[in-house]
Amino acid sequence: MFFSLLFSLLSFFIFLLFEIILRQINLRKTLSPINILIFALLFYFIISITFNIFVFYNPIERYLISLLYFLLYAVLYLHLFIGLSKSVSLRIIDEINYSSLKQLSLFELNKLYSEDDFFYKRVDLMIENNWLINNKNHLVCSSKGTLLVKLNIFFLDLYKIKNSG
């Protein structure tokens, strides 16, 4: 029992350390949660295979249980990561904290967190990831974008959500 807990913690901290180092030296810039999750899982498999061969042999069941704990830490990290990288609310309170008087009017907030930051950087990212297609300055959904939108509309109806976004 303790092996699984300790091994999952150890592998997660090594993953986190790698993630921070790679980001600090600009070798990793992705904001995609799926990319991060795949990287984390790959990392876990490499560590567990290395550990099993060179350090301490354990039945595969121990590593499977450890993987469940690892997945929990990974999803918590993803929550933190997505919140920090994408949250509009966090950006607003950070802008107030960055300001010299620690207070901002709606007009100043509009200027500091401009429409450019709000919309166009996201649109560029969506074009880059092939969710949207830029056709002579006109945006249209790509086929994978259309599929995602249809799924989104289905869930909005299912939850009866009228004002999303």
């Binding site: 993630e19 921070i20 980001r23 600090q24 600009n26 810039k29 904001l31 990561f81 920090l84 990288s85 994408k86 949250s87 509009v88 966090l90 950006r91 607003i92 950070d94 802008e95 967190y113 930051d117 950087k121 996201r122």
Partner: peptide, 8 residues
């Protein structure tokens, strides 16, 4: 994590 200002 070198995320800049975020919210973009």
């Amino acid at each position: 994590l070198k995320l800049g200002k975020g919210g973009e």
